[in-house]
Design a protein around this nucleic acid. Sequence first.
RNA 1: GCGCCAUUAGCUCAAUUGGAUAGAGCGUUGGUCUACGGAACCAAAGGUUAGGGAUUCGAAUUCCUUAUGGCGCACCA
Length: 562
Amino acid sequence: MDYKSVVAKLIKSDELDKSEILAALAPTQDAKNGDLCLPCFKFAAKLHMAPPAIANKLKEDLLPDPLIEKTEVAGGYLNFYFNREIIAKNAIDAIANNNFTLPPLESNGKTVCIDYSSINIAKPFHIGHLLTTAIGGSLYRMYKYCGYNAVGINHLGDWGTQFGKLIVAYKKWGDDGDIEKRNIRALLDLYVRFHTEAEKNPELEDEGRYWFKQIEDGNEEALAIFHKFKDITLKEVSKVYDRLGITFDSYAGESFYNDKMQPIIDRLKEKGLLTISEGASVVDLEKYGMPPCLILKKDGTSLYATRDLAAAVYRKKTYDFYKCLYVVAYQQNLHFKQFFKVLELMGYDWAKDCVHVPFGMVSLEGAGSLSTRKGNVVFLSDVLDSAVSKSLEIINEKNPDLENKEQTAQDVGVGAVVFGALSGGRIKDISFSLDKALSFDGETGPYLQYTHARCCSIAEKAKGVTGKLDYSVLCDEDAFAVVKLLDAFYPTVLNALDKYEPSMVSRYLIDLAQAFNKFYVGSRILGEADDVAYTRLTLVKAVEATLKTGLNLILLNAPEKM
RNA sequence: GCGCCAUUAGCUCAAUUGGAUAGAGCGUUGGUCUACGGAACCAAAGGUUAGGGAUUCGAAUUCCUUAUGGCGCACCA
């Protein structure tokens, strides 16, 4: 419920605009100052009055409404204290009358493409890929929830000289039995070995280039090996996606655009954008304060930007997107600025709808930056396994009779890792530590899941409780804090989407769980009078529904017992 | 060298986007179990918001500047 606009309508003023007042209204920081406040300082110059005097005048002229129980002037603030029963009724009824679900918003018909995860073939799925995968996956769910048609795109890194190198390594040192057994880890070893050997024998690089050329030219042997690598990778990676609950609508990657770049180059030439510089074909961007965007190398072959241009045009044609997001680390900030500018110069007015959603770097605590070439990586599946087995240990210790132990341990262990990736602002660099990823106390995924399970448990035990809703029961500090948070769910999700920031939902869920747990320890349900018990139970079920829906938006399952 | 980003409690992060006494978690110390899940709750300690300047009723938030760290800057992606 949008109480700001309700209050704004009640404020009478000849000199002040409704929109001005609406913009100034803000939630209070502390409940003792009421629920909403109007700082009057900025009106002082216009009205030639002191802020407290303005607050007092507005207070006197305020139209009466049942929503507002009282108003107080404190300094230059006009504070509004709401009738808590009305707020509680609105918040609770919205969920209770919907059979304790928080339905998605209605479709608005808009399509959003989200390019995320975008793993490289024949390379490990390591913790460096966790952020793009989790952020993109969460945005995907949030867009769907908010009524958009979301298209998840895994822009596979399935082209380039590294495949030639890998073929060389495979032909020299490859062991099919080993690959069969250890699949992608065996490929990683080959890749690392190639780079160490190439330092001694630089001619290996030439061999690598030769074999990549064979792939491009359709050499059967080369293609067979390449496809074998691709199959192994996709099979392995899809296991991880399954565990994370991630899905894609398209796996069109780099190789997919190989035959779609010529029209781009033609159009660039047509528009007179392409110039030759140091033998390469570039789009000069000096006017815009950027280095040139390289389109073709001097040998005439294409580059990253070329493929991205082709992909963007293809996506616009195929999906007619309202927005196209690229969830890619901030290292590539400049690349996206250049690439979007080139799209714009090509005359595509939808270039403004392309958005880079950057995030911070992941390094290894104690071991520095991740490097596939050096083999300095931590496999995501290993991290998930550790988290799951720790979770299983805790379950065996605390709840040994639990059914579905394995699945629950998956939910909780994976949840801990994923929440860790989605709990902070995107842009912060992360120094990955297994200890931190395996923390289950405090502001963590398992804490949210625990709180949800607690709700389920009470609801189960209080099944027989019936009575009438008495909203006055929800007006004490602890219960009302929960009520206000329930009311903030949809605005929080919409705001998170607006900022492409899943962590806003994560923070919100932590706030809700903390408020709920505080309420929980202080307010009994079983054993209270019928109406009190029933009303509190209803609040519990509303929290349960909100936690479950919110957890789902940040990719966490919400087991009923754990 | 040029550009972009970051810097808030010992550590990891918030702060409704310019509002009231800057809040949480971890860790530390001390409490709460004969009520529904202790993966919990309560309390204490911990701050010149990296330093300096400016803007204004008001700045962690905007601008300038310095410092530290990260990233990027031509044929990798």
